[in-house]
Design a binder for these strands. Structure first.
Length: 722
DNA sequence: AAAACGCCGGTTTTT
DNA sequence: CCGGCGTTTT
């Protein structure tokens, strides 16, 4: 049986145990993707399961893509019939078929974060709410939280107290939801929530999909939220052939609503469940794995397990304290060059992991200067660029004229003399007369718009109607026509700036995307194209054969592995992040620690931890202590422990500084982590120090007051000595 | 209506 | 260091 070759006994068992619920607790690097793919191959070849009856759900596009590729190698063309997809794209596909049951039409558009905010802002404006008090950002986070828990506005209302603010949030949520529906739009969370709603309200539809997906596999189960959990369990309820794979130590999305209980209580949900543990790590050397294990041991809430490896010790973990972020980047450049020379490695064998995307820039700059090829994942995405969003907005309105967010975006882009005031008039008129904005644009005078602007509005609408006629032709043609006829391209060409040039290039790049789509699907389903695009990330265009270094966030790196890994920014307030420190919630620090575990276990042969003594954040210098996670790695795994800073907080700032930097005031110094008392606000913790000496700006987290910024020489602060 | 300027304000991680 | 936003100017 070739499928079982090269698998260890536990892996073999996991592959063969195909019937009934199965929980695979798979430590980092224990070959879980291998198990999943081989299990699918086993189902197809040994159990003669039709590939179309298998659903494999992953968390990210990247993971789905990788699994699909591996399956193609394993089962050949049968892989085409399999459903290998993320939660979101699975739901998208289902909803494209079934959403009419819920009163939407199948040409719905998907709103991204930015679109949501635009809609929320316009709602706040209409409700006369202060944008500073009800920030779109926090409101959308709240709404997302409710949706992840499958809570409708009504349900949310039932469980809150009598806080006025909370009630308003729910009012906004309710209005937001109404507007989405009116616009025939869904946000990311709706994709999941509405699919669950569909299944709950239409048992006959659910039954159909239960029958279709006789075997379900879910990767990264520890990262599922309530809505996703419900979705899976509904789908699996009939056949109960549910195989979930996860690792509680790698749960790093609780901030996004992931509920670790989903994996911890699987055995209660399915008492007949079989549990298999995979504890042998095939990825990392002993030193790397040992260090990672020791770090994560500091967490309290975890299933006990110990990963082990047969690999040799290998290098100890390297540790470098840089002067600043530029020096940190240069260290990476030097090291990459050296290792490439000595060990004949490719650029693609190296990865730089950062806690935040803001750290990317300094690293990128150094790599460019050093002529080292690299690819960035995360950060500003291709589809988030202004020019791409603009052209997409045109296409979206053509596919779905109810989409007010996109309509607003393009009605005066390029400039047509239709300003904010006219737009507001249209919206108001449409809302009071129960019409759609797009319809009102046929008779703008009725909305009280002056003759000149009215003519512009009508001309614009007429042009859009003309585009609509072409909506069934191929998308490349339509896109080109829009760019020409609206003068969008011309406007950029006339600008003759570098930025305009880049935008034109990006539009050209967009046309290669449409061409590919046109070639693959004969004859344009515009709505399908748009929906697909909205779930895409840059990763989908990633050519894994290209020899380039990788820069990404630690979150983005989950599930991947590299021979050499740089983990940067090992500083308090960056990693663990200041927000997790300030929250005073130990659980948040534990999540950061798991992230550290994930980051370390990406490395196969060498891991470099770096930190900067001084780092420019938002244009200001900040000085942070070494990350606590460094101290959690036992000396025996670290290469040069002597260079480590003393853990003590007592010395001056200089204690951790490289010798060439020698300016710092010793008077009235506060350090991150210091406990202080404030005359008015009581006890707090210093979460950041910017600048030095008496002018230093100190941020202090007070339990009840939040974070306050204070200037050292004025602040009535006293250190609390333990 | 649009450009130009200056001011806070806010900044984690992703589908 | 950006970018978004409100104010002022053209």
């Amino acid at each position: 049986m070739s499928i079982l070759e090269n698998l260890n006994p536990q892996q073999q068992e996991a592959v063969q145990c195909t019937e009934g619920p199965l929980l695979i607790l798979a430590g980092a690097g224990s070959g879980k993707t291998r198990v999943l793919t081989h299990r699918i191959a086993y189902l197809i070849y040994e159990k003669k399961v039709y590939p179309g009856n298998i659903l494999a759900i992953t968390f990210t596009n990247k993971a789905a893509q990788e699994m699909q590729e591996r399956l193609e190698k394993l089962v050949g063309s049968a892989a085409e019939r399999l459903w290998v997809a993320t939660f979101h794209s699975t739901c998208l596909r289902i909803l494209r078929w079934e959403i009419k049951e819920l009163g939407y039409t199948s040409d719905f558009v998907i709103y991204d974060e930015q679109d949501q905010q635009t809609l929320l802002k316009s709602i706040l404006k209409e409700m006369n709410l202060d944008e500073n008090k009800y920030t779109p950002r926090s409101i959308s986070a709240r709404i997302s939280g409710y949706k992840n828990e499958l809570k409708t506005p009504d349900a949310a209302l039932r469980e809150i107290g009598n806080s006025y603010y909370d009630h308003q949030v729910i009012n906004i949520y309710e209005e937001y939801q109404k507007r989405l529906k009116k616009n025939n739009a869904l946000d990311f969370d709706d994709l999941i929530m509405l699919t669950v709603k569909l299944f709950k309200e239409k048992p006959e539809v659910l039954a159909e999909y239960q029958e279709r997906f006789k075997y379900i596999l879910v990767d990264e189960y520890q990262d599922t939220n309530t809505a996703q959990y419900m979705l899976i369990n509904l789908l699996a309820a009939k056949h109960k052939n549910l195989c979930v794979v996860g690792d509680d130590d790698q749960s790093i999305y609780q901030w996004r609503g992931a509920d670790i209980r989903n994996i911890l209580s699987f055995e209660e949900d399915y008492p007949e469940a079989k549990v298999i543990k995979l504890e042998q790590n095939y990825r990392s050397t002993k030193n790397i794995l040992g260090a990672a294990n020791e770090v994560v041991k500091n967490n309290t809430r975890r299933k006990a397990k110990t990963l082990w490896t047969e690999k040799e010790g290998g290098d100890k973990i390297h540790y470098y304290t840089a002067q600043d972020e530029v020096d940190e980047a240069l260290f990476i450049v030097r090291t990459v060059r050296q290792i490439r020379e000595e060990e004949n490695k490719d650029y693609k064998d190296f990865a730089v992991l950062c806690r935040t995307t803001g750290q990317f820039r300094a690293i990128e700059e150094s790599l460019i200067r050093a002529n080292i090829p690299y690819r960035v994942f995360g950060g500003t995405k291709f589809y988030d660029r202004k020019e791409i969003k603009d052209i997409l907005a045109y296409l979206r309105v053509i596919a779905n004229p109810f989409d007010e967010v996109s309509l607003k975006r393009i009605i005066n882009t390029p400039k047509r003399g239709i300003g904010e005031t006219s737009w507001d008039k249209l919206v108001k008129y449409a809302n009071t007369n129960g019409k759609t904005i797009y319809d009102c644009m046929a008779e703008p005078e009725a909305a009280g718009i002056g003759a000149k602007t009215a003519a512009a509005v009508k001309a614009f609408r007429k042009q859009m109607e003309g585009f609509k006629e072409l909506s069934n032709s191929n998308i490349t043609f339509l896109t080109t026509k829009i760019l020409e006829d609206t003068g969008y391209r011309q406007e950029l060409e006339l600008e003759k700036t570098i930025e305009a040039e880049t935008r034109l290039e990006n539009l050209q790049e967009f046309l290669t995307v449409t061409k590919r789509y046109d070639a693959e699907s004969q004859g344009g389903d515009l709505a399908a194209f748009l929906a697909e695009i909205s779930l895409m990330t840059d990763i989908d265009n990633y050519d894994s054969d290209e020899d380039a270094m990788v820069i990404m966030t630690m979150h983005g790196a989950k599930g991947l592995e590299f021979p050499v890994v740089f983990i940067t920014g090992m500083e308090e307030n960056l990693f663990p992040h200041s927000r997790s420190i300030a929250s005073n919630d130990p659980e948040e620090i534990e999540e950061e620690r798991r992230l550290c575990y994930v980051a370390l276990t990406r490395a196969k042969e060498k891991a470099f931890l770096t930190r900067a003594w001084r780092r420019s954040i938002f244009g200001r210098d900040s000085f942070n202590k070494e990350s606590r996670f460094i101290g959690e790695i036992p000396e025996k795994y670290l290469e040069n422990p002597l260079k480590r800073e003393k853990a003590a907080f007592s010395g001056s700032l200089l204690s951790g500084a490289p010798s060439s930097v020698s300016r710092a005031s010793s008077s009235c110094s506060f350090y991150v982590g210091d406990k202080v008392t404030h005359v008015k606000w009581g006890q707090g913790v210093v979460v950041s120090v910017k600048g030095t000496g008496e002018d230093a700006e100190i941020s202090v987290a007070f339990p009840d007051q939040g974070i306050k910024k204070l200037i050292a020489k004025y602040a009535p602060l006293k250190k609390v000595t333990n």
